[in-house]
Amino acid sequence: MSVSIRQTVAALGLAVVALAQGGAANAETTKTAPIAADDPRMVAGLAIYTDTCMACHRATGEGVPNLFPKLAKSDVVQQKNAAWPIIMVLQGGRSGATDASPTGAAMPSLGWRLSDDQVADVLTYIRNSWGNAAPALAARDVEKLRQ
């Protein structure tokens, strides 16, 4: 399933395929100070994160080994071009399975459940928590990527 997402990303002309494959070396991150926790977007984002994301990615953003990727100190999450995280939340994805680690856990698609504002806020929250720092996202960043 993640293959098809990567294809979607490529079709949109966004060169994030390398990032999607974990090629963090190419990630263009921005070294700003994190947005304050009491910023209204962060407050809303934390609430959404608690309800919808925390069960898997954990309160600390550390994720779960072999199942759910770590969002804390993640280049993928902090990259300037946030297309991959946005598409992940909108459409979901499924990690690869191998003989040694066959589970291939899924990130559920949540685009049906969260508005553009909510997706922007929750991503703003994860981009600025647990040591992460990256520019806030706005509803129009999300809107562009919804089909």
Binding site: A55, N66, F68, S101
Partner: peptide, 17 residues
């Protein structure tokens, strides 16, 4: 807690939902 079983399948910690 997180756990990976004898067949390599992984489980996550319960959230007490």
């Amino acid at each position: 807690t997180a756990y990976t079983n004898t067949y390599g399948c992984s489980l996550a910690p319960c959230t007490y939902c």
